[in-house]
Design a protein around this nucleic acid. Structure first.
Length: 128
RNA sequence: ACAGCUAAUCGGUCUGUCGCCGUUGCCAUAAGGCAAAGGAGGAAAGUCCGGGCAGCACAGAGCACUCCACUUCCUAACAGAAAGCUGUCUGUAAAGGCAGAGUAACGCAGAAGAAAAUAACCGCCUUGCAAGAGGUAAGGGUGAGAAGGUGGGGUAAGAGCCCACCGGCCGUGCAGCGAUGUACGGGCCGUGCGUCUUGGAGGCUGCAAGUUCAUGUAUACCGGCGCUUGAGGGUCGCUCGCCCAAGCCGGAGGGUAGAACGCUUUAGCAUUGUGGUGACACAAUGCAUAGAUGAAUGACAGACACUCCUUUUGGAGCACAGAACCCGGCUUACAGAUUGACUGUUAUA
RNA sequence: CGGGGUGUAGCGCAGUUGGUAGCGCAUCUGGUUUGGGACCAGGGGGUCGCAGGUUCGAAUCCUGUCACCCCGA
């Protein structure tokens, strides 16, 4: 059985890549989540992830942290189908996950939507 | 007992599974793996003050500018804190809020009002046929503010002109380190704000400071100094000396977007003792307690505690809020719990 | 994290040596026109972001607070 991890290496940090991602990346939505993704070969992990919660939507740092932690937890526990799909094709990818609701949602709800979102990324990438 | 006021403390606990971050140890050529013990706050917040620290600037002194201002005291420092003083407001009270250096000179005080400061509009009194002249701050009216206030004597009418009490000012004695209080005496006193005067503080920029390494570009351009008549660098607390030495400094432009140091041991925390009304200081003993950087400190399940609603079975809730170089304050947000001092009301002894 | 600014009528802005809060557009009424626009005349509309303080008096000075915007790699 594979372990559900999300170490620092899999975080997306490079400013250049992020700028390119937002400029050229394709997007999918599974409300309240939106993903922006781009194929990106010059990187170590198979999928580099960026999680973003806008200050405009949650004014207090406590609320932003809570939402980011829930998203991180959801990604950690449901990332393997995506990783396998990319590995089988020999591709690597940079993904930004945005939270576009203005109120809190439960962890279980976010996890369901995360699974749907990652599934959507795979199908949309195959089409393209 | 209830209600309040004030000072302080706390502001969930435990178990299991899966994760995140750095540290230490072991294993591994390496990538990494395993284990251990740790991992948000009283406000981490706002960024309103004050320092430390860093770079740059700087001969000395003065002026200007900005801020502060009852007294004594604490502190590294402060616009902060402590103990007091005076006035004023709120409260039955405990208590709390606000204001408080000085006034020699100068300026301003809209509208209203006769007049806003060497004052006479109406009125009153004297004089005069009258016009007018003189005296008068008791009464009217305007205003935030109008000639110390109230009462009596006194007078042509009046007025500190005189007296009593009160308020203010000056002097002396006493108490206090002092602000100030108090007793006695004196003369009889025009409001507010500002400029100003006196004393104190302040160089500028901020960890995206600053330092080092790697990658990369421009050995090109402009200005200055220098090329053996030595710029600059090293040694060094400084000068001399000695050594190295052909580049160095600034501007504009181009390039890089990675890593490390700074980065957590400190004006540090806890306990006890001593001094002080107190803020606080000193001493002894013990402790080591986040250090991330597109930014970790969590998710899920269960149990307990607490509060509320229903009622004996359950349901709901559980504040404000998340470190970003570090401290000392201030301000603002905050469900609830505990302890000490004090006040009021009611009841009982 | 650090630095700076703004908040005044429905909209865009003046007014900050303290003394009745204005301008343009919009809006309303009347006139003009066959009717509309333009034009002419007149009117209404303000917790000056919010809460305290100083002052006789605050949009203006001081303190706190809320919202929004800009700059620094």
């Amino acid at each position: 059985m594979k372990r559900n991890t999300f170490p620092l290496k899999e975080h997306l940090k490079s400013k250049r890549v992020i700028e390119k991602l937002y400029a050229e990346g394709a997007s999918v939505t599974a409300y309240p989540l939106r993903a922006v993704f781009l194929e990106q070969q010059e990187q170590e992990p198979i999928a580099a992830i960026l999680i973003s919660v806008a200050k405009k939507r949650f004014r207090h740092a406590v609320d932003r942290n809570l939402v980011k932690r829930r998203i991180r937890e959801a990604y950690r526990t449901s990332k393997h189908p995506l990783i396998e799909a990319l590995e089988n094709n020999g591709k690597k990818m940079a993904i930004a996950i945005l939270y576009i609701d203005t109120k809190h949602n439960s962890t279980a709800f976010i996890k369901r939507k995360m699974e749907k979102l990652l599934d959507n990324i795979i199908t949309k990438y195959r089409e393209a």
